[in-house]
Simulated assay, not measured.
Amino acid sequence: MTFSQDLLDRIAIRDLVENWAVWRDAGDWTRFRTVWHDDGVMQATWFQGSADEFIQVSREGFEKGVSILHFLGGSSIDLEGQRAIAQTKMTISQRGPVEGVECDVVCTGRFYDFLERRAGKWGVVLRQPIYEKDRLDPVDPSARLRLDPELLSQFPQGYRHLAYIQTRIGYTVKKDMPGLVGPEVEALYGRGKAWLAGAASPLHASA
């Protein structure tokens, strides 16, 4: 049985996306580095920078007990020669103290990945999560939790509770990340189309 190159590329990309989540959450930093190209970039609520910097700060947080886990759902992949855009349904789950109460926050969204095949190997050039909906719950359901409404209202609806907990444990959170709808996600889609059409950088919608 023979398989088309298109199918083999899709399998390789899905494998890469799944390895990203498993190796990052397990703290397998050596293998986690292999999913990125050397110029890879990560954009998240609490971090924006190179893949190497992201691995370093993720490792430091992991060793300090920062609990961030990722769960994956379905994936849609657009292929154009040596480039691809992969969108993968996901949830981000983080545990930490909020106003003195141990809490879990769960954010549902998509990983929007700019990928390229170089020397026969697919790798992430840019990962940009899309944050669609989140919620915050005390680990102990009988606990009494009161949030600061002024702080909560500073963040977009799609990730305001995730931003809240991340702010309370000391991170500076970016306030204009893409959500389910709006100009930020429309701009991201535009950059995705430009990437497939040959744009020089995934961070800009022009060649």
Rank of each mutant, 00 (worst) to 15 (best):
F111H: 15
L16R: 02
E184S: 05
G120A: 09
S58A: 14
K133P: 06
T172E: 05
W29H: 02
K193P: 03
R135Q: 11
D38W: 04
H70T: 06
F111Q: 15
L7Q: 15
D137M: 14
P202R: 01
S206Y: 10
T91I: 11
D137H: 14
A207V: 11
V17Y: 07
V181M: 15
N19K: 10
I92Q: 04
G192K: 02
R117I: 05
L8Y: 05
S76G: 08
L8C: 01
H204Q: 15
R83N: 05
G73F: 10
G40M: 00
E186V: 07
Q166W: 12
A200T: 11
V181P: 08
E184P: 06
G81E: 10
I130C: 00
I92K: 05
P156Y: 03
T2F: 12
D104M: 13
N19V: 03
F3S: 15
E63C: 02
R117Y: 12
L115C: 09
Q166A: 14
E60T: 10
R191Q: 11
L69H: 11
F114M: 03
W29F: 05
R191K: 13
Q48M: 08
G96I: 00
Y189G: 09
V105T: 07
A194W: 09
R117S: 13
G190T: 09
G65A: 07
P141H: 04
A205Q: 14
Q87T: 08
I13G: 03
I130W: 01
F32M: 06
Y131V: 03
A12N: 02
S153M: 12
S153V: 09
I77M: 11
R59L: 03
D28C: 00
G123H: 15
Y171G: 00
K64C: 06
I11C: 07
I169H: 11
G81H: 09
V41D: 09
E102I: 04
P178M: 00
W23Y: 15
T88V: 04
G49N: 02
C107S: 08
S93M: 09
V66Y: 14
E150M: 06
G40T: 01
Y131Q: 07
D113Y: 10
M42F: 13
E132L: 04
D28Q: 03
R33T: 03
S4Q: 11
K174R: 14
V139H: 00
L7A: 13
I11G: 02
M42L: 12
I13R: 09
F62L: 07
L162K: 06
S153K: 12
L196W: 05
R14I: 01
Q43Y: 13
I165W: 04
R146Y: 13
G100L: 07
V35R: 04
M1P: 10
D9C: 02
